[in-house]
Amino acid sequence: MQADRRRVNAPPGGTTPPVFATPSNTPIARPVRSRQPDEHRKIFLRTGFVPSASGSAYYEIPPETTSQSKTLLIPSSSSLKITCTVHGPRPLPRNAAFSPNLLLSTHVKFAPFATRSRKGYVRDSSERDLGMHLESALRGVVIGERWPKSGCEVVITVLEGEEDGWWGDAQGAEKSGGWGMMGVLAGCITVASAALMDAGIDCVDMVSGGVAALASDERGNGTRIVLDPSPSEHDIKAACVVGYLQSRDEITEMWMKGNAGVQTEALIDEAVKAAVMTRSVLGEAVKESVELKANHTDRNVKEKGSANDVTMTG
């Protein structure tokens, strides 16, 4: 033992944070899904909030307000806040190799405070992985051959990520299979699609993201398929995310994880259903932004018409 006897040394291993005993009369209840299994949470989506970018969008699933009295510090539901900016299409740097198509690159980053465990400033492997998924969802819709020798960057910042599990479940916190990521990917696909529309990049269709999960049924023993699962409310067995093109009835991106057994195809169909729901919001948001832009240009034209002789010279 070469321990220093003159001071109190820190424990040799890591430490675990203190867990406070809960009084036995306030049982920590897992939040219960108040929605129907085929009901999506409300989505807020708006485009064009970053004026300096060619296209941008903000996506939010607000936390559900529960009627439960707040006796515990444990958050009962999770929320999702994602911003997306699109830069481009712009010429590739001079030293880049020739590319016959638009080079789309995606960059997904969680804010350090976005999740329960802090994320670093350097992208970790799960963020890179999300970027790859998003890239494959978007590359399928963008008509790349119309912009040879150009690049386009889709930058996503997740301000608030979905929970991976339930806060009160000490074991669940560690053994969770990263189900929150799947909800984040569905949100990323939708918001990136809205930002691409805002940037005016030619696409074959609007791609929207949807997620469905096979979760154990709280009331019975079996399992049921739920749309847009909030991981804190369910014990998820398998989940599926799709990037879906409704008007072509095609899937550009699919990510399925877990053992769904015979219900694999039903799970895919439900995820597509969720994507169709998201698309209605996406459509409205894009329409809104187009109307805003049209009004804006109309007004500009009128103003110019009335004061038509202010010209800069020099």
């Binding site: 016959p100 198509n101 998924h133 890239e135 590359r139 051959e145 990510w255 399925m256 057994g261």
Partner: peptide
């Protein structure tokens, strides 16, 4: 292959095919 059962799908991912980068 799980114990006592047939095959089951445990994961599925779409991959961005390199064909999207080809020249038309």
């Amino acid at each position: 292959q799980s114990a006592g059962a047939g095959l089951k799908v445990v994961a599925l991912r779409m991959i961005d095919p390199p064909s999207r980068l080809t020249a038309g």
